[in-house]
Design a protein around this nucleic acid. Structure first.
Lengths: 227, 227
DNA sequence: TGTCGTATGATTGTATACAATTATACGAGG
DNA sequence: CCTCGTATAATTGTATACAATCATACGACA
Protein backbone atom coordinates (compact mmCIF):
# COMPACT_ATOMS: atom_id res chain seq x y z
CA UNK A 1 0.00 0.00 0.00
CA UNK A 2 2.36 2.70 -1.16
CA UNK A 3 -0.24 4.78 -2.89
CA UNK A 4 -0.52 7.83 -0.74
CA UNK A 5 -0.58 11.58 -1.08
CA UNK A 6 -0.28 14.73 0.93
CA UNK A 7 -3.91 15.28 0.21
CA UNK A 8 -5.98 12.17 -0.34
CA UNK A 9 -8.54 12.04 -3.08
CA UNK A 10 -12.14 11.65 -2.15
CA UNK A 11 -13.20 9.14 -4.72
CA UNK A 12 -15.61 7.28 -2.55
CA UNK A 13 -18.49 7.33 -4.96
CA UNK A 14 -20.58 4.89 -3.05
CA UNK A 15 -20.64 6.22 0.48
CA UNK A 16 -23.14 8.92 1.21
CA UNK A 17 -20.39 11.19 2.44
CA UNK A 18 -18.53 10.84 -0.85
CA UNK A 19 -21.65 11.54 -2.86
CA UNK A 20 -22.48 14.58 -0.79
CA UNK A 21 -18.92 15.83 -1.10
CA UNK A 22 -18.81 15.49 -4.86
CA UNK A 23 -22.25 16.97 -5.28
CA UNK A 24 -21.60 20.10 -3.25
CA UNK A 25 -18.20 20.51 -4.85
CA UNK A 26 -19.76 20.38 -8.28
CA UNK A 27 -22.47 22.81 -7.28
CA UNK A 28 -19.98 25.32 -5.96
CA UNK A 29 -17.70 25.05 -8.97
CA UNK A 30 -20.65 25.35 -11.30
CA UNK A 31 -21.91 28.41 -9.56
CA UNK A 32 -25.11 27.01 -8.14
CA UNK A 33 -24.11 28.35 -4.75
CA UNK A 34 -23.08 31.96 -4.80
CA UNK A 35 -20.11 33.38 -3.00
CA UNK A 36 -20.60 33.76 0.74
CA UNK A 37 -23.81 31.78 0.62
CA UNK A 38 -24.51 29.84 3.79
CA UNK A 39 -24.82 26.08 3.54
CA UNK A 40 -27.10 24.59 6.17
CA UNK A 41 -26.63 21.03 7.16
CA UNK A 42 -30.29 20.07 7.38
CA UNK A 43 -31.21 21.76 4.13
CA UNK A 44 -28.46 20.02 2.19
CA UNK A 45 -29.25 16.78 3.92
CA UNK A 46 -32.93 16.94 2.98
CA UNK A 47 -32.11 17.92 -0.57
CA UNK A 48 -29.93 14.87 -0.98
CA UNK A 49 -32.06 12.64 1.21
CA UNK A 50 -29.46 11.95 3.86
CA UNK A 51 -28.99 12.84 7.49
CA UNK A 52 -26.67 15.50 8.86
CA UNK A 53 -23.82 13.14 9.66
CA UNK A 54 -22.52 12.52 6.13
CA UNK A 55 -23.19 16.14 5.27
CA UNK A 56 -21.06 17.32 8.15
CA UNK A 57 -18.20 15.04 7.19
CA UNK A 58 -18.37 16.27 3.64
CA UNK A 59 -18.30 19.84 4.94
CA UNK A 60 -15.11 19.16 6.85
CA UNK A 61 -13.47 17.97 3.68
CA UNK A 62 -14.76 20.79 1.57
CA UNK A 63 -13.29 23.14 4.11
CA UNK A 64 -9.85 21.66 3.60
CA UNK A 65 -10.37 21.91 -0.14
CA UNK A 66 -10.95 25.59 0.42
CA UNK A 67 -14.37 25.55 -1.20
CA UNK A 68 -16.19 26.52 1.95
CA UNK A 69 -15.25 28.17 5.19
CA UNK A 70 -16.59 26.82 8.43
CA UNK A 71 -16.98 29.20 11.33
CA UNK A 72 -17.42 27.22 14.56
CA UNK A 73 -20.95 27.26 15.90
CA UNK A 74 -21.97 29.56 13.10
CA UNK A 75 -22.08 27.78 9.81
CA UNK A 76 -20.48 26.94 6.51
CA UNK A 77 -20.05 29.63 3.90
CA UNK A 78 -19.23 29.20 0.24
CA UNK A 79 -15.87 30.46 -0.88
CA UNK A 80 -16.13 31.38 -4.51
CA UNK A 81 -13.25 31.31 -6.95
CA UNK A 82 -11.45 34.61 -7.13
CA UNK A 83 -9.69 35.91 -10.23
CA UNK A 84 -6.60 36.50 -8.15
CA UNK A 85 -6.62 32.86 -7.10
CA UNK A 86 -6.81 31.70 -10.68
CA UNK A 87 -3.86 33.87 -11.54
CA UNK A 88 -1.86 32.59 -8.58
CA UNK A 89 -2.67 29.01 -9.41
CA UNK A 90 -1.48 29.41 -12.96
CA UNK A 91 1.76 30.98 -11.84
CA UNK A 92 2.26 28.21 -9.30
CA UNK A 93 1.35 25.60 -11.86
CA UNK A 94 3.79 27.12 -14.28
CA UNK A 95 6.65 26.33 -11.93
CA UNK A 96 5.31 22.95 -10.91
CA UNK A 97 4.40 21.68 -14.36
CA UNK A 98 7.92 22.61 -15.32
CA UNK A 99 9.29 20.55 -12.46
CA UNK A 100 6.94 17.76 -13.39
CA UNK A 101 8.08 17.73 -17.01
CA UNK A 102 11.68 17.72 -15.82
CA UNK A 103 11.11 14.69 -13.64
CA UNK A 104 9.09 13.00 -16.34
CA UNK A 105 12.20 12.90 -18.54
CA UNK A 106 13.74 10.42 -16.17
CA UNK A 107 10.71 8.45 -15.15
CA UNK A 108 8.20 8.32 -17.95
CA UNK A 109 7.40 4.84 -19.25
CA UNK A 110 7.21 3.74 -22.83
CA UNK A 111 3.48 3.19 -22.45
CA UNK A 112 2.91 6.68 -21.12
CA UNK A 113 4.87 8.19 -23.99
CA UNK A 114 2.87 6.22 -26.48
CA UNK A 115 -0.38 7.32 -24.92
CA UNK A 116 0.77 10.93 -25.05
CA UNK A 117 1.56 10.61 -28.72
CA UNK A 118 -1.82 9.09 -29.38
CA UNK A 119 -3.56 11.89 -27.51
CA UNK A 120 -1.70 14.55 -29.43
CA UNK A 121 -2.43 12.83 -32.71
CA UNK A 122 -6.11 12.57 -31.88
CA UNK A 123 -6.23 16.16 -30.72
CA UNK A 124 -4.94 17.33 -34.10
CA UNK A 125 -7.90 15.61 -35.65
CA UNK A 126 -10.47 17.11 -33.32
CA UNK A 127 -8.87 20.54 -33.34
CA UNK A 128 -9.27 20.74 -37.09
CA UNK A 129 -12.97 20.06 -36.74
CA UNK A 130 -13.67 22.22 -33.75
CA UNK A 131 -14.72 19.39 -31.46
CA UNK A 132 -14.41 21.32 -28.25
CA UNK A 133 -15.59 18.65 -25.84
CA UNK A 134 -13.08 16.15 -27.12
CA UNK A 135 -10.32 18.75 -26.98
CA UNK A 136 -11.03 19.44 -23.35
CA UNK A 137 -11.06 15.74 -22.59
CA UNK A 138 -7.78 15.17 -24.41
CA UNK A 139 -6.14 18.12 -22.70
CA UNK A 140 -7.21 16.56 -19.44
CA UNK A 141 -5.70 13.23 -20.34
CA UNK A 142 -2.44 14.72 -21.51
CA UNK A 143 -1.86 16.56 -18.29
CA UNK A 144 -2.97 13.62 -16.19
CA UNK A 145 -0.42 11.37 -17.86
CA UNK A 146 2.23 14.02 -17.48
CA UNK A 147 1.49 14.22 -13.76
CA UNK A 148 1.58 10.49 -13.36
CA UNK A 149 4.85 10.16 -15.20
CA UNK A 150 6.90 12.31 -12.84
CA UNK A 151 7.23 9.58 -10.22
CA UNK A 152 6.17 11.85 -7.39
CA UNK A 153 2.88 11.22 -5.67
CA UNK A 154 3.33 14.54 -3.91
CA UNK A 155 3.66 16.59 -7.06
CA UNK A 156 1.18 14.48 -8.95
CA UNK A 157 -1.55 15.06 -6.45
CA UNK A 158 -0.84 18.73 -6.02
CA UNK A 159 -1.07 19.31 -9.74
CA UNK A 160 -4.20 17.22 -10.07
CA UNK A 161 -5.79 19.30 -7.34
CA UNK A 162 -5.07 22.56 -9.09
CA UNK A 163 -6.07 21.12 -12.40
CA UNK A 164 -9.44 20.19 -10.95
CA UNK A 165 -9.78 23.52 -9.25
CA UNK A 166 -9.53 25.55 -12.42
CA UNK A 167 -11.45 23.05 -14.50
CA UNK A 168 -14.49 25.18 -14.97
CA UNK A 169 -12.41 28.07 -16.20
CA UNK A 170 -10.29 25.86 -18.39
CA UNK A 171 -13.25 24.55 -20.30
CA UNK A 172 -14.14 28.04 -21.38
CA UNK A 173 -10.56 28.71 -22.34
CA UNK A 174 -10.29 25.78 -24.68
CA UNK A 175 -13.38 26.82 -26.56
CA UNK A 176 -11.33 29.56 -28.07
CA UNK A 177 -8.97 28.79 -30.91
CA UNK A 178 -6.24 28.00 -28.43
CA UNK A 179 -7.02 24.31 -28.54
CA UNK A 180 -4.83 23.73 -31.57
CA UNK A 181 -2.01 25.90 -30.29
CA UNK A 182 -2.12 24.23 -26.92
CA UNK A 183 -1.86 20.85 -28.56
CA UNK A 184 1.25 21.90 -30.46
CA UNK A 185 2.77 22.98 -27.18
CA UNK A 186 1.90 19.58 -25.75
CA UNK A 187 3.68 18.04 -28.69
CA UNK A 188 6.86 20.02 -28.06
CA UNK A 189 6.80 19.15 -24.38
CA UNK A 190 6.34 15.50 -25.20
CA UNK A 191 9.22 15.58 -27.67
CA UNK A 192 11.52 17.23 -25.15
CA UNK A 193 10.67 14.52 -22.63
CA UNK A 194 11.14 11.86 -25.28
CA UNK A 195 14.63 13.07 -26.16
CA UNK A 196 15.36 13.30 -22.43
CA UNK A 197 16.05 17.02 -22.35
CA UNK A 198 14.99 18.15 -18.86
CA UNK A 199 15.90 21.82 -19.26
CA UNK A 200 13.95 22.13 -22.45
CA UNK A 201 10.98 20.16 -21.11
CA UNK A 202 10.81 22.29 -17.98
CA UNK A 203 11.03 25.51 -19.91
CA UNK A 204 8.35 24.46 -22.38
CA UNK A 205 5.94 23.26 -19.72
CA UNK A 206 6.61 26.46 -17.84
CA UNK A 207 5.74 28.58 -20.83
CA UNK A 208 2.76 26.41 -21.68
CA UNK A 209 1.06 27.46 -18.46
CA UNK A 210 1.91 31.11 -18.90
CA UNK A 211 0.48 31.01 -22.40
CA UNK A 212 -2.68 29.32 -21.18
CA UNK A 213 -3.13 32.04 -18.59
CA UNK A 214 -2.45 34.85 -21.04
CA UNK A 215 -4.99 33.42 -23.41
CA UNK A 216 -7.55 33.15 -20.65
CA UNK A 217 -7.17 36.81 -19.84
CA UNK A 218 -7.45 37.85 -23.46
CA UNK A 219 -10.60 35.83 -23.97
CA UNK A 220 -12.34 37.43 -21.05
CA UNK A 221 -11.97 35.16 -18.11
CA UNK A 222 -13.92 37.84 -16.29
CA UNK A 223 -17.17 36.65 -17.82
CA UNK A 224 -16.99 33.34 -16.00
CA UNK A 225 -15.85 34.56 -12.64
CA UNK A 226 -17.69 37.05 -10.55
CA UNK A 227 -14.97 39.12 -9.08
CA UNK B 1 -14.06 38.01 5.17
CA UNK B 2 -11.52 37.66 2.41
CA UNK B 3 -9.22 35.33 4.27
CA UNK B 4 -9.49 32.08 2.39
CA UNK B 5 -7.24 29.42 0.99
CA UNK B 6 -7.26 26.41 -1.22
CA UNK B 7 -6.74 24.38 1.87
CA UNK B 8 -8.19 25.76 5.06
CA UNK B 9 -6.30 25.58 8.30
CA UNK B 10 -7.80 23.63 11.14
CA UNK B 11 -7.12 26.00 13.97
CA UNK B 12 -10.25 25.26 15.90
CA UNK B 13 -8.57 24.69 19.20
CA UNK B 14 -11.74 24.69 21.22
CA UNK B 15 -14.00 22.26 19.45
CA UNK B 16 -13.49 18.62 20.23
CA UNK B 17 -12.95 17.89 16.58
CA UNK B 18 -10.18 20.43 16.37
CA UNK B 19 -8.50 19.06 19.46
CA UNK B 20 -8.72 15.51 18.21
CA UNK B 21 -7.37 16.58 14.84
CA UNK B 22 -4.39 18.39 16.28
CA UNK B 23 -3.67 15.65 18.75
CA UNK B 24 -3.62 12.84 16.21
CA UNK B 25 -1.65 14.97 13.79
CA UNK B 26 0.97 15.60 16.45
CA UNK B 27 1.07 11.95 17.41
CA UNK B 28 1.61 10.86 13.84
CA UNK B 29 4.27 13.47 13.14
CA UNK B 30 6.01 12.61 16.40
CA UNK B 31 6.01 8.95 15.59
CA UNK B 32 3.67 7.76 18.32
CA UNK B 33 1.67 5.95 15.69
CA UNK B 34 3.76 3.79 13.43
CA UNK B 35 3.38 3.57 9.71
CA UNK B 36 0.40 1.51 8.57
CA UNK B 37 -0.95 1.37 12.11
CA UNK B 38 -4.71 1.19 12.26
CA UNK B 39 -6.54 3.95 14.08
CA UNK B 40 -9.83 2.81 15.59
CA UNK B 41 -12.51 5.35 16.22
CA UNK B 42 -13.66 4.04 19.58
CA UNK B 43 -10.15 3.58 20.92
CA UNK B 44 -9.09 7.10 20.01
CA UNK B 45 -12.38 8.42 21.30
CA UNK B 46 -11.97 6.77 24.66
CA UNK B 47 -8.37 7.86 24.93
CA UNK B 48 -9.38 11.48 24.44
CA UNK B 49 -12.66 11.15 26.27
CA UNK B 50 -14.92 11.98 23.36
CA UNK B 51 -17.41 10.10 21.26
CA UNK B 52 -16.86 8.77 17.77
CA UNK B 53 -18.42 11.73 16.00
CA UNK B 54 -15.63 14.29 16.46
CA UNK B 55 -13.08 11.55 15.93
CA UNK B 56 -14.60 10.65 12.61
CA UNK B 57 -14.65 14.26 11.45
CA UNK B 58 -11.04 14.65 12.45
CA UNK B 59 -10.22 11.50 10.50
CA UNK B 60 -11.81 12.92 7.38
CA UNK B 61 -9.57 15.95 7.63
CA UNK B 62 -6.47 13.97 8.41
CA UNK B 63 -7.19 11.99 5.29
CA UNK B 64 -7.12 15.12 3.17
CA UNK B 65 -3.92 16.15 4.90
CA UNK B 66 -2.51 12.86 3.77
CA UNK B 67 -1.58 11.73 7.25
CA UNK B 68 -3.94 8.78 7.23
CA UNK B 69 -5.63 6.75 4.59
CA UNK B 70 -9.24 5.75 5.05
CA UNK B 71 -10.44 2.60 3.36
CA UNK B 72 -14.24 2.58 3.30
CA UNK B 73 -15.81 0.15 5.73
CA UNK B 74 -12.38 -1.00 6.76
CA UNK B 75 -10.57 1.60 8.77
CA UNK B 76 -8.05 4.40 8.97
CA UNK B 77 -4.38 3.65 8.55
CA UNK B 78 -1.45 5.87 9.38
CA UNK B 79 0.57 7.15 6.48
CA UNK B 80 4.06 7.80 7.70
CA UNK B 81 6.42 10.34 6.22
CA UNK B 82 8.55 8.88 3.47
CA UNK B 83 12.03 10.05 2.65
CA UNK B 84 10.96 10.37 -0.97
CA UNK B 85 8.16 12.70 0.11
CA UNK B 86 10.55 14.90 2.03
CA UNK B 87 12.76 15.14 -1.01
CA UNK B 88 9.85 15.97 -3.27
CA UNK B 89 8.58 18.59 -0.88
CA UNK B 90 11.93 20.29 -0.73
CA UNK B 91 12.21 20.35 -4.51
CA UNK B 92 8.68 21.71 -4.78
CA UNK B 93 9.35 24.22 -2.04
CA UNK B 94 12.49 25.30 -3.82
CA UNK B 95 10.46 26.44 -6.79
CA UNK B 96 7.68 27.92 -4.71
CA UNK B 97 9.81 29.76 -2.18
CA UNK B 98 11.54 31.27 -5.17
CA UNK B 99 8.22 32.42 -6.57
CA UNK B 100 7.28 33.67 -3.13
CA UNK B 101 10.46 35.73 -2.79
CA UNK B 102 9.89 37.13 -6.26
CA UNK B 103 6.40 38.28 -5.38
CA UNK B 104 7.55 39.57 -2.04
CA UNK B 105 9.74 42.12 -3.82
CA UNK B 106 6.65 43.89 -5.02
CA UNK B 107 4.39 43.40 -2.06
CA UNK B 108 6.38 43.30 1.13
CA UNK B 109 5.58 46.04 3.62
CA UNK B 110 8.02 48.18 5.51
CA UNK B 111 6.95 46.51 8.75
CA UNK B 112 7.58 43.04 7.38
CA UNK B 113 11.01 44.03 6.17
CA UNK B 114 11.87 45.48 9.55
CA UNK B 115 10.71 42.33 11.30
CA UNK B 116 12.82 40.24 8.96
CA UNK B 117 15.88 42.32 9.75
CA UNK B 118 15.22 41.98 13.44
CA UNK B 119 14.88 38.22 13.15
CA UNK B 120 18.11 37.93 11.22
CA UNK B 121 19.91 40.12 13.70
CA UNK B 122 18.61 38.10 16.61
CA UNK B 123 19.48 34.85 14.91
CA UNK B 124 23.09 35.93 14.57
CA UNK B 125 23.16 36.34 18.32
CA UNK B 126 21.65 32.95 19.06
CA UNK B 127 23.65 31.17 16.38
CA UNK B 128 26.88 32.28 17.99
CA UNK B 129 25.76 30.74 21.27
CA UNK B 130 24.27 27.58 19.92
CA UNK B 131 20.72 28.29 21.09
CA UNK B 132 19.04 25.71 18.92
CA UNK B 133 15.47 26.19 20.08
CA UNK B 134 15.57 29.90 19.40
CA UNK B 135 17.15 29.29 16.00
CA UNK B 136 14.33 26.95 15.01
CA UNK B 137 11.77 29.47 16.21
CA UNK B 138 13.42 32.32 14.32
CA UNK B 139 13.72 30.25 11.18
CA UNK B 140 10.02 29.61 11.49
CA UNK B 141 9.23 33.28 11.84
CA UNK B 142 11.39 34.30 8.91
CA UNK B 143 9.69 31.94 6.55
CA UNK B 144 6.26 32.78 7.86
CA UNK B 145 6.82 36.46 7.19
CA UNK B 146 8.19 35.68 3.77
CA UNK B 147 5.08 33.68 2.97
CA UNK B 148 2.81 36.41 4.21
CA UNK B 149 4.60 39.08 2.25
CA UNK B 150 3.97 37.59 -1.18
CA UNK B 151 0.38 38.80 -1.34
CA UNK B 152 -0.97 35.42 -2.37
CA UNK B 153 -3.16 33.52 0.03
CA UNK B 154 -2.86 30.55 -2.27
CA UNK B 155 0.91 30.39 -2.22
CA UNK B 156 1.11 31.43 1.40
CA UNK B 157 -1.04 28.60 2.57
CA UNK B 158 0.58 26.02 0.37
CA UNK B 159 4.01 26.91 1.70
CA UNK B 160 2.80 26.99 5.28
CA UNK B 161 1.39 23.52 4.81
CA UNK B 162 4.64 22.11 3.56
CA UNK B 163 6.56 23.99 6.20
CA UNK B 164 4.42 22.36 8.88
CA UNK B 165 4.69 19.00 7.23
CA UNK B 166 8.45 18.83 7.39
CA UNK B 167 8.65 20.55 10.76
CA UNK B 168 9.82 17.53 12.67
CA UNK B 169 12.61 16.92 10.21
CA UNK B 170 13.54 20.56 10.09
CA UNK B 171 14.12 20.74 13.80
CA UNK B 172 16.75 18.06 13.57
CA UNK B 173 18.34 19.80 10.64
CA UNK B 174 18.80 23.08 12.40
CA UNK B 175 20.54 21.42 15.29
CA UNK B 176 23.50 20.97 13.05
CA UNK B 177 25.82 23.89 12.37
CA UNK B 178 23.66 24.94 9.47
CA UNK B 179 21.74 27.40 11.60
CA UNK B 180 24.28 30.15 11.08
CA UNK B 181 24.68 29.44 7.38
CA UNK B 182 20.95 29.35 6.91
CA UNK B 183 20.62 32.70 8.59
CA UNK B 184 23.15 34.25 6.25
CA UNK B 185 21.11 32.94 3.34
CA UNK B 186 18.03 34.51 4.88
CA UNK B 187 19.94 37.75 5.05
CA UNK B 188 20.83 37.67 1.36
CA UNK B 189 17.27 36.85 0.42
CA UNK B 190 16.00 39.70 2.53
CA UNK B 191 18.47 42.11 0.96
CA UNK B 192 17.50 41.05 -2.55
CA UNK B 193 13.86 41.70 -1.68
CA UNK B 194 14.77 45.00 -0.09
CA UNK B 195 16.56 46.22 -3.18
CA UNK B 196 13.62 44.98 -5.24
CA UNK B 197 15.58 42.49 -7.31
CA UNK B 198 13.08 39.71 -8.13
CA UNK B 199 15.42 37.56 -10.19
CA UNK B 200 18.04 37.55 -7.49
CA UNK B 201 15.53 36.99 -4.71
CA UNK B 202 13.97 34.07 -6.52
CA UNK B 203 17.30 32.48 -7.27
CA UNK B 204 18.51 32.85 -3.70
CA UNK B 205 15.35 31.46 -2.15
CA UNK B 206 15.52 28.66 -4.65
CA UNK B 207 19.02 27.77 -3.67
CA UNK B 208 18.24 28.19 0.02
CA UNK B 209 15.88 25.25 -0.12
CA UNK B 210 18.24 23.09 -2.12
CA UNK B 211 20.97 23.78 0.42
CA UNK B 212 18.67 22.95 3.30
CA UNK B 213 17.85 19.66 1.67
CA UNK B 214 21.47 18.83 0.90
CA UNK B 215 22.39 19.53 4.48
CA UNK B 216 19.62 17.31 5.74
CA UNK B 217 20.89 14.42 3.68
CA UNK B 218 24.47 14.92 4.83
CA UNK B 219 23.44 15.01 8.46
CA UNK B 220 21.62 11.75 8.24
CA UNK B 221 17.99 12.50 7.75
CA UNK B 222 17.66 8.74 7.68
CA UNK B 223 17.89 8.54 11.44
CA UNK B 224 14.66 10.42 11.91
CA UNK B 225 12.59 8.81 9.22
CA UNK B 226 11.87 5.13 9.02
CA UNK B 227 12.08 4.38 5.38
C1' DT C 1 -5.89 -32.44 4.82
C1' DG C 2 -7.54 -28.63 2.40
C1' DT C 3 -11.22 -25.65 0.85
C1' DC C 4 -15.32 -23.47 1.08
C1' DG C 5 -19.40 -21.63 3.38
C1' DT C 6 -21.48 -19.85 7.30
C1' DA C 7 -21.84 -17.83 11.85
C1' DT C 8 -20.18 -14.58 14.94
C1' DG C 9 -17.85 -10.55 16.48
C1' DA C 10 -15.75 -6.26 15.54
C1' DT C 11 -15.71 -2.00 13.11
C1' DT C 12 -17.38 1.49 10.30
C1' DG C 13 -21.56 4.08 8.12
C1' DT C 14 -25.67 6.50 9.01
C1' DA C 15 -29.56 8.37 11.56
C1' DT C 16 -31.35 10.55 15.37
C1' DA C 17 -31.59 12.61 20.01
C1' DC C 18 -29.90 15.90 23.03
C1' DA C 19 -26.67 19.82 24.48
C1' DA C 20 -24.44 24.08 23.52
C1' DT C 21 -24.10 28.06 21.02
C1' DT C 22 -25.62 31.81 18.26
C1' DA C 23 -28.94 34.92 15.91
C1' DT C 24 -33.21 37.29 16.18
C1' DA C 25 -37.20 39.59 18.10
C1' DC C 26 -39.18 42.12 21.35
C1' DG C 27 -39.89 44.87 25.24
C1' DA C 28 -38.13 47.53 29.42
C1' DG C 29 -35.62 51.34 30.73
C1' DG C 30 -33.28 55.51 29.83
C1' DC D 1 -35.96 57.12 19.67
C1' DC D 2 -32.14 54.42 21.03
C1' DT D 3 -29.81 50.91 23.80
C1' DC D 4 -29.52 47.01 26.27
C1' DG D 5 -30.96 42.66 28.12
C1' DT D 6 -33.71 38.65 27.92
C1' DA D 7 -36.50 35.08 25.78
C1' DT D 8 -37.04 32.28 21.91
C1' DA D 9 -35.91 30.02 17.71
C1' DA D 10 -32.61 28.26 14.68
C1' DT D 11 -28.32 26.05 13.93
C1' DT D 12 -24.33 23.64 14.96
C1' DG D 13 -21.64 20.34 18.29
C1' DT D 14 -21.65 15.99 20.40
C1' DA D 15 -23.28 11.51 21.95
C1' DT D 16 -25.57 7.44 21.17
C1' DA D 17 -28.37 3.93 18.79
C1' DC D 18 -28.96 1.16 14.97
C1' DA D 19 -27.67 -0.70 10.21
C1' DA D 20 -24.31 -2.32 7.01
C1' DT D 21 -20.03 -4.18 6.06
C1' DC D 22 -15.92 -6.70 6.84
C1' DA D 23 -12.65 -10.02 9.30
C1' DT D 24 -12.14 -14.15 11.72
C1' DA D 25 -13.07 -18.76 13.38
C1' DC D 26 -14.87 -22.95 12.93
C1' DG D 27 -16.93 -26.87 11.03
C1' DA D 28 -18.94 -29.51 6.96
C1' DC D 29 -17.64 -31.70 3.02
C1' DA D 30 -14.75 -33.34 -0.61
Amino acid sequence: MDNRDLKQEVTDKYSLRGRVFNRIREDILNGKYKDHEELKEVAIGQELGVSRTPVREAFRQLELEGLIQIIPNRGAYVTGIKIKDIKDIYMIRSKLEGLCARWACEHITKEQLEEMEEIIYLAEFHAARGHMDQMAELDNRFHTILYESCNSKMLEHLLKDYHQYVWRVRQKTLSSNRGAVSNVEHKYIMEAIKENNPDKAEELANQHMLNAYENMIENGLLDVINE
